[in-house]
């Protein structure tokens, strides 16, 4: 089954380039294009793609607001891959915090883009764990969320806490299974229940929650 993709970028030339790259893969299919955030939200609801490839800076509604609305649809909601023109900055982190599953610099190679879309669609591991964790560690501020997140973590079993720690270290489901000497499916279901108990959209948000609650500290792992 093909992965269905939606592109959101205000530059038609950039969209054309992304579309060509993604459509050239036999298992990927671009099913829609949006020129701004509100278009992206509408099309995501209408077409229910698997992944939305989203530019951050767009007119009328930016990629942050659009991401937040798109992922609010619950488990069935599309996952979001955020694209950024320049460096990894607080906008990128903010996009991850509101629910994007990963990010990519626009200047990344076509191969990296295809890989990123596949990783995000599967949800089995973090996209670029080291960079992601550095970004999260840098911008995470233990704020008002901390208490609520801590009480969520209280509900985790010991095994689930172990799993969360490994997720925060960027381990994939397969690696978690190997490390804890459990089956792949068991690992997957542990990750699933961690996400549910934390009330987060995906493992990227679980990592952010782990840092924001103080469960995992900067520089740890």
């Amino acid at each position: 089954m093909n992965l269905k993709l939606l592109l959101a970028d205000d530059d038609a030339m950039v969209r054309a380039g992304l579309r060509a790259v993604l459509n050239s893969e036999h298992d990927l299919e671009v099913i829609g294009e949006a020129a701004d955030g509100s278009d992206a939200v509408a099309l995501a609801a209408e077409l229910s793609p698997d992944v939305v490839v989203m530019d951050i800076r767009m007119p009328t509604m930016d990629g942050l607001a659009a991401t937040e609305q798109i992922v609010s649809g619950g488990d069935a909601a599309p996952r979001v891959l955020v694209l950024t023109t320049f460096e990894l900055d607080e906008y990128v982190f903010e996009a991850l915090r509101v629910g994007a599953s990963g990010f990519l610099l626009k200047r990344a190679s076509p191969e990296d883009l295809v890989e990123a879309v596949r990783v995000i669609a599967s949800g089995d591991s973090l996209l670029f764990p080291p960079v992601m964790r550095r970004l999260v560690a840098e911008y995470t501020a233990a704020g008002e969320q901390a208490d609520r997140l801590r009480s969520n973590i209280e509900f985790l079993t010991d095994r689930e806490r172990q799993v969360l720690r490994l997720v925060a270290r960027g381990k994939s489901n397969r690696e978690i299974a190997d490390e804890l000497f459990i089956g792949h499916e068991t690992a997957k279901s542990h990750v699933g229940s961690v996400l549910t108990k934390l009330g987060v959209h995906g493992r990227t948000q679980a990592v952010i929650a782990a840092y924001e609650s103080g469960f995992v500290r900067t520089g740890e792992g």
């Binding site: 530059d11 030339m13 950039v14 054309a16 380039g17 992304l18 060509a20 790259v21 050239s24 023109t85 626009k106 200047r107 190679s109 076509p110 883009l113």
Partner: peptide, 16 residues
């Protein structure tokens, strides 16, 4: 912004 666009287009051109 412009050079990013060039990069995206060049990557796409190579791929297809």
């Amino acid at each position: 912004h412009t050079v990013t666009l060039m990069t995206v287009q060049a990557g796409a051109g190579r791929k297809v």
